[in-house]
Design a protein around this nucleic acid. Structure first.
Lengths: 313, 313
DNA sequence: TTGTAGCTGGGTAATAGTCATTCAAGTATA
DNA sequence: TATACTTGAATGACTATTACCCAGCTACAA
């Protein structure tokens, strides 16, 4: 049994296809086939059922694949140990970011990070919290930036910052005269929401639920960008809520429509999430340090109340 | 990096000697040297400092060795998974037993076990609890039978049976007239003890301590076997304590000197101990099942009070 | 000096890899 | 229903690599 064989097995398990798995492993299909077979011979079990299409994994196979994941991850860790010892921070690092954070946060820290750690090859992927969790679990992402708390087994959360919710209330709205917003004012049927799948949407809904103002779910209009929501609000379609960082880039004539909440300000917790096994932890720590230090300047810490990003499902 | 290379590194780390490590790994010394070097080259660190004699492990080396142990153990587990799936119970299994249990317990279960699981190659080693713990930790023993509770991190304890202490009180002893012994009667200066290193000795001392009858530590005579202790007692050198199973094989004319304790009977807990990683767990479970079922017939469960086997150190 | 212990060099056998081909199963076409 | 067509894994022949052995060298301590 070799680590290579285990890696091949993992590739096949992932892609359910020998040819594709071979490509991803940068070898030819016969090579990969042979090695998988050799492992199966050595253990004297069938890991894959090749008679079905697409191929399936046998019962033992599943256990073996799980264990193989362990072993391969632990083996990778050795390189980590050496890197850490040398104080070397470099190599590929894949980071997921949720859509509502991406456009505001990324420009803030990206430059500083690649300047400070030029040997790290950052690969950034925008994706939903759900996909991100899956990818962190199976190692396709080294870390992710998402709204927390998620409290998922095998995943660690390290808060980066707390981002207050800010109301965007156009002139003619019933709340336009209020000085500060209160969650009691909110009515979910009146708030323009992001599309399904965005966790900020869930956050807003949870916020409204908290004040029991949920009057049936006849949300009228939904969009994928805050820009659209603001425009719709200006058109008199209702109010909307924005994460604080998204309010910084608004045009001056729109900023006057912004309203803060009374304290404790409802806020979302944005965290770096990564697998408990702490692979590439030195890069993760470096990243956390850079982001925290930068955001510290942008958001004054105050009396906040964290709103959960989780939906009913 | 291959699993073989890691195994070689572990062998060198253990024996602090390339030649010996090579022998134990069933390869020649140059072969092993080369593979270790290759790994060092790949990781670009020195794992061993060959300039010192005996060779030492570098700082990074220690971390690498620890991680290598993980990886190799996890890799072995794969075979375990397969065996478990097939319901196959076989292969080498190394078991440690403490000296005071060995001669009585081993003959009771050995035959039954090898008959029931003929494919398991049992390798039994008599050793002190201290050595046993070390060996279970580093994988040289698959399990051990010892007096518990030990409560050691990374080691699991599964009790097999509770073995009462029985007094051996010769005719002219001050306690000879008592019907049942009480811990209050005991005086450690009057009790013949096993040599240092036996955990049963510690158990007896703890038992006496419990009744605060420790009048200074002027133990006169110490021996390595219960047989000697009994003979010495017959010679009027004092009384002694035996584990229940050791009383079964006494000659009839000596059995009349045996005295039980009042309930709750002081007893030692004998457990199967093994590493938390649960390697070869199916064999361990099989062993536990066989021993428990056999001992159940020999020792009637009663109202017992467990005496700790641990000394001051 | 001798013994101990690791490294080096040359040769061999095992094996991980390649390419080209074959085989099996499903799918479309006549 | 038979026929070709496509997809995806297995097989065979060959090559490159490498893990291994043996013999000998070197460094060092007793």
């Amino acid at each position: 049994m070799t680590i290579t064989q285990l890696q091949y097995v993992l590739a096949v398990a992932e892609h359910k296809n020998f040819t594709l798995a071979a490509e991803k492993s940068f070898v030819t299909q016969p090579t990969l086939s042979m090695q998988v077979q050799k492992l199966e011979d050595e253990l004297d079990v069938l890991i894959f059922d090749r008679s079905k299409k697409p191929i399936t994994i046998t019962e033992v196979g599943k256990k073996i694949v799980d264990q193989a994941k362990n072993i391969v991850a632990e083996a990778e860790r050795i390189k980590d140990i050496v890197d850490q010892d040398k104080g070397y921070i470099g190599g590929d690092y894949t980071l997921g970011i949720i859509p509502t954070v991406m456009p505001t946060l990324l420009p803030m820290f990206l430059n500083a990070f690649i300047k400070k750690y030029p040997k790290v090859n950052l690969i950034i992927k925008e994706q939903s919290t759900k996909t991100m969790i899956k990818n962190v679990m199976d190692g396709h992402l080294d870390a992710g930036i998402a709204a927390t708390p998620l409290e998922i087994e095998f995943i660690k959360e390290r808060p980066l910052y707390y981002e207050p919710f800010v109301g965007y209330v156009p002139k003619n709205h019933r709340l336009a005269s209020e000085e500060l917003l209160s969650t009691d004012h909110l009515d979910v049927s009146d708030i323009l929401l992001l599309q399904d799948g965005h966790c900020f949407r869930e956050g807003v809904i949870n916020l409204c639920k908290a004040s029991q103002n949920l009057r049936g779910e006849h949300f009228k209009i939904e969009s994928g960008s805050f820009e659209t929501l603001v425009s719709l609000a200006d058109e008199g379609m209702g109010m909307t809520l924005l994460p604080y960082l998204n309010t910084l880039h608004l045009e001056e004539n729109k900023k006057i429509n912004l309203k803060s909440f009374q304290k404790p300000t409802p806020a979302r917790e944005i965290s770096l999430i990564y697998h408990k096994s702490e692979l590439k932890i030195q890069i993760t720590d470096a990243l956390r340090e850079v982001i925290s230090s930068i955001v510290r300047g942008a958001i004054a810490f105050q009396d906040v109340k964290i709103i959960s990003p989780l939906g009913k499902n």
